[in-house]
């Protein structure tokens, strides 16, 4: 088979972004081997980042499936996750129980936020992505004032001098940093594989898969695929969209906490601003579109995207000495992939 035909077949089957990113990743791995880099450490590192980001990416599924499209307003859920994370520290909890309690507390907070968000999205059908993006931005910047004013007292969290307001980064060491990553961690060529975090991610994938097989999940998918069909079948489309948005927001909150425990810090203020874009890009790389997404897209997309980010940095840095490259690649790849997806949605007219 000639290369062009093969290329076409591959891109038709897996989607253009997935093939491109896989190819890039393969090139970087070859480069890493040739530069004699510690590939095992890279793999372990990638695994950490995959487990760290996985649930945030998974949060895209209910929103895409229920028909509200890519959830650029995921930062709403991320904020409630952060809030729950702070409350757990304020209550002076530690270790796994602190993390689990934070997760439990984040759920009602996210659900309320998701409900309000879903209510708005039901009023702006067709423009969910534009409105969601700026709604996310607005709430993040409003919450920046909130972080300054909220009456947290724990000295670990508030500014050492001056006293008022929370710090930009709150260290979690001694609280719940790495509680999942270190759970059942397996040694791997001098590094550790974060078994607990991977299992946690797998658990949520399984729950999502089961949900999509349930009566409600099936109805939600129908509402997303064809709202007119769903309405004619007696399915309440707005309610299904609401369910999708709430679940997405809740997963955003939990995903943020998983991210934070692995990262070791809670990042407040403007930090959540661009996080939804990375999650969106990952699911798109996995082969999802603005209208269709599966668990397989989430898993493969997260693996490809995070592995690319992890591997590219040392490889390029070894080739030439410039800083901040991983950031540039993240920006170009994630926005490039989103742009590509937008052109594929087709013109509105």
């Amino acid at each position: 088979m000639n290369p062009m035909a093969l290329w076409k077949k591959l891109t038709d089957k897996y989607g253009f972004p997935k093939v491109c990113i896989s190819l890039m990743l393969a090139i970087f791995f070859i480069g890493a081997f040739m530069q004699k880099q510690d590939v095992a450490a890279m793999l372990a590192d990638s695994t950490v980042r995959i487990a760290m980001n996985g649930i945030l990416v998974l949060a895209m599924v209910p929103s895409i499936v229920s028909g509200t499209g890519l959830n650029f307003g995921l930062s709403l859920g991320i904020i409630t996750g952060l809030l729950a994370g702070c409350i757990a520290i304020e209550l002076d909890m530690r270790g796994m129980s602190a993390f689990l309690w934070a997760v439990v507390m984040s759920i009602p907070l996210s659900a309320i936020m998701g409900y309000a968000y879903g209510w708005i999205l039901n009023k702006v059908k067709g423009d969910e992505m534009t409105v969601g993006t700026y709604l996310g931005f607005s709430v993040v910047s409003l919450m920046s004032i909130g972080w300054l004013l909220l009456p947290f007292k724990s000295p670990e969290m508030i500014w050492a001098i001056g006293g008022a307001g929370l710090r930009t980064t709150i260290a979690l060491s001694g609280r719940y940093a790495k509680v999942l990553d270190d759970l059942f961690a397996i040694p791997f060529f001098g590094s550790k594989l974060p078994t607990g975090a991977v299992l946690f991610f797998a658990l949520f994938c399984l729950l999502m898969w089961l949900f999509l097989k349930s009566k409600t999940g099936v109805a939600m998918a129908a509402a997303g695929d064809n709202p007119k069909f769903a309405a004619a079948s007696g399915i309440n489309v707005n309610r299904q969209r609401m369910i999708g948005t709430v679940i997405s927001t809740v997963l955003g909150g939990i995903g943020m906490l998983v991210y934070a425990q692995s990262f070791g810090f809670l990042q407040l203020y403007q930090a959540p601003l661009m996080m939804p874009f990375a999650a969106t890009a990952a699911v798109l790389i996995g082969g999802a579109s603005a209208r269709k997404a599966t668990i397989a897209h989430v898993v493969s997309g997260t693996i490809l995207f995070q592995a690319l980010l992890t591997v590219s940095l040392p490889v390029i840095n070894a080739a030439m000495n410039v800083g901040n490259l991983s950031e540039i690649i993240r920006i170009i790849v994630s926005n490039g992939v989103i742009l590509y997806a937008l052109t594929k949605v087709g013109g509105g007219h």
Binding site: A221, A222, D225, N226, K228, F229, A232, R291, K292
Partner: peptide, 14 residues
Amino acid sequence: VSEDRRGVGLLLDT
């Protein structure tokens, strides 16, 4: 069975 088969009658991607 709707007259608008593709618009109302079917989930085209299901």
